[in-house]
Design a binder for these strands. Structure first.
Lengths: 229, 229
DNA sequence: GCATATTTGTCCGTATGTATA
DNA sequence: CTATACATACGGACAAATATG
């Protein structure tokens, strides 16, 4: 624990050099977001105002604004007079996240009878790079490409707000993936299903694609709930 | 404008007495949210840190935290080094909001083959109080009850995150309603449609309800876009 | 259960940078 | 171009709550 904290502080000190443009609070938030999603700050960790503020060389007030930003992205939770913590998802969180995914992703596919060329290209790219990463055994990258695929599915609905909703939702889910000890076992079985969904979309069989996606998400949810209590 | 600002400051001074519990920033945000949705701060208005801070008797740091909260609810927009403004919706915002509404609300109805008793009660309550408000010519209240009806539709999906998404979406739409000069003309024609949708849900005809809701939302969107450039 | 140390919540004053009249 | 007004960011202060021994 002490070792981890020391390395964390060291890494943050390097990040400090990158602080150059835009609003300080947002840049700080971007750095912390990166560190959280890559797993440097594990779920449940408390983020001290004092240590992180001095490590990044920003004042407490500025850091608190960054904390607010990330709290509203649900990556951090703020407990009054206790500080901020990296979010730890509960089982009901996972259930809810997949409920939203089923509803939104399936509806996005349903109403995409004639998907745009860019949307199709994004879907193909995501499937392709997921398969490439799998061949090279980069399982974290498989997970990332997988998320891009589902983000692209939502983009079929052509709604900026839905895109943002989906981004935030996937960022939350990533917190859960971080706590998985076997990324291969989780991501690999779903690879071929993405390919199948894409083919159904390309052939215009949106109903079939929706059915397949629905069962995909149901299975993934059970898989995740079971593996991670 | 000066008169309005003066009255606004006066009203905020009264609000100051209410500041007692929980987190100061959140209480300030709650007050401002109320004032915005009731129309005291019109869309486009700039909210000065100095004047509002002193009117409410809170420091600028605290006020800035409240501004962040409301910015992430999309009620305010933050422009770097220029301050925060009450959001003003563009036409493409309205189009996007209704796109999300169609997708989410219709999907929520679709998958609600057996709605819970509470959900049905919420739907009936909203329709009832909308009709009551209409009989008494309280058109703003009609609009509010209308929103409760559609919020209750989303609640059929039984997802906290979806509920929150819908709340934020409706709060945004309220900004648009505020700029309408004839609330009766906008809200009245949709009253009977809500009643019809409710009846179809009660009889288990989710497909019919979904179709009716879809056309409802499409019409409302055109109505709104046309009335408000 | 109590006393102490740590950390957060809130506010202030100020210096700097940015936009606008 | 200058002047003014304002936002940004910092550091310090004290109260209040929490954690620790």
């Amino acid at each position: 624990m002490i070792d981890g904290a020391a390395r964390a502080t060291e890494r943050l000190a390097e990040d400090r050099a990158l602080l150059g443009r835009t609003s300080t609070a947002e840049r700080v938030a971007a750095i912390l977001r990166e560190r959280i999603t890559e797993g440097m700050f594990a779920p449940g960790t408390r983020l001290s105002e004092e240590s992180i503020g001095s490590a990044l060389g920003v004042s407490r007030n500025t850091l608190r604004e960054a904390f607010r930003l990330l709290s509203h992205e649900r990556l951090l939770v703020h407990e009054l007079n206790r500080g901020v913590f990296v979010r730890r998802l509960t089982e009901s969180d996972v259930v809810d996240l997949y409920r939203v995914r089923r509803l939104v992703e399936c509806a996005a596919i349903r109403q995409a009878a004639k998907p745009s060329a860019e949307a199709l290209a994004a879907l193909r790219e995501a499937v392709g790079s997921a398969e490439l990463a799998a061949r090279e055994q980069r399982w974290e990258d498989v997970g990332t490409a997988n998320m891009r695929f589902h983000q692209a599915i939502v983009r079929l609905a052509a709604s900026p707000r839905l895109d943002e909703t989906m981004s935030r939702l996937l960022a939350e889910l990533r917190l859960c993936f971080l706590e998985m000890n076997n990324p291969r076992a989780f991501h690999e079985p779903y690879l071929w299903r993405n390919r199948d969904i894409l083919q159904l979309i390309e052939t215009g069989d949106t109903e079939g694609a929706e059915r397949l996606l629905d069962s995909y998400l149901t299975d993934a949810e059970h898989h995740l709930v079971q593996a991670h209590p």
